[in-house]
């Protein structure tokens, strides 16, 4: 379980997150969505320990982030953060990269070899497994970077925009299924950000909407649908929650054009 207590963060004078408190239950797939520049990545970075918030703190399974060297090392093994844009070693092969990540996290060698091979199959990268990463296309690079949190078998995955960055439909489908099964069968907690509501409905069971640095929505999708009434799709409901002014903006635009 992840607990966020009164977190406030600002880089300059504008607060990006203001006094945020919430709890993310274990085994949930939580989507963090919101308009651009509203603090989704900052929120995930606070969860991941990438930055120390100006105020407040984060606890993972009762252990406070950055509280001591040993605890933080243990948390880094438990919770893996994958940023939206990674740096990958150009001249290493995909297999070398994945095995390297696994070794860094002390995964047993034999299991590592097998798991790496299965990940290449999952993302249709088997033929490229022993080619340098510089030969990979943008989408293939995204796939190999997405394979790295999976190979370390972390209990908590913090993924920043995992479904963007040139991922093809097969890759999106594979990732979606894997995340669902990891949460349902292994009890993994998955928190990811997404720029558009369309990706949320099938990939998440919980939703956090950040708007103006504050939590606008923090609930399970099922409860949200119940609250907002029947006869509407998740997408419609999300659009109303996240971008309430969008429909009006479109209407205003065309109204202006006709005039």
């Amino acid at each position: 379980m992840i607990r966020v207590e009164n977190v406030t963060q600002h880089y300059s004078v504008r607060p990006v997150l203001t006094d945020i408190s919430l709890t993310i239950p274990q085994g949930s797939r939580t989507a963090v969505i919101g308009p651009n520049g509203m603090g989704k990545t900052t929120f995930l970075s606070v969860l991941a320990g990438v930055l120390e918030p100006q105020r407040g703190h984060v606890e993972i399974d009762g252990i406070r982030r950055r509280s001591s060297v040993d605890k933080e090392l243990a948390l880094r093994k438990k919770a893996f953060f994958l940023p939206d844009r990674c740096y990958l070693p150009k001249m290493r092969t995909g297999r070398e990269f994945l095995l390297g990540v696994g070794r860094l996290y002390d995964i047993e060698e034999l299991r590592l070899f097998d798991h790496a091979q299965r990940l290449f199959s999952l993302f249709n990268l088997t033929e490229l497994a022993d080619s340098p990463i510089s030969n990979y296309s943008a989408g293939q690079q995204k796939k190999i970077s997405l394979a790295s949190p999976l190979i370390i078998e972390a209990e908590i995955l913090l993924l920043d925009e995992p479904f963007s960055g040139g991922l093809d439909p097969a890759g999106i489908l594979a990732l979606r299924r894997v995340l669902t099964r990891l949460a349902e069968e292994n009890g993994c907690t998955i928190v990811f950000t997404a720029p558009v509501p369309e990706l949320v409905a099938e990939n998440a069971d919980r939703l956090i909407v950040i708007r103006d640095g504050q939590i606008a929505v923090n609930d399970s999708i099922a409860d949200l649908l119940t609250k907002t009434g029947t006869g509407r799709s998740v997408e419609q409901m999300l659009n109303e929650q996240i971008f309430p002014e969008s429909e009006q903006n479109v209407a205003d635009y065309f109204a202006g054009g006709v005039a």
Binding site: G49, F80, F81, P83, P89, G100, R103, L104, Y105
Partner: peptide, 15 residues
């Protein structure tokens, strides 16, 4: 390993 694996492993790895 850390140095060749790039970001985020270089800074966020348990080393």
């Amino acid at each position: 390993l850390k140095n060749i694996l790039g970001w985020p492993h270089d800074s966020m790895g348990p080393i």
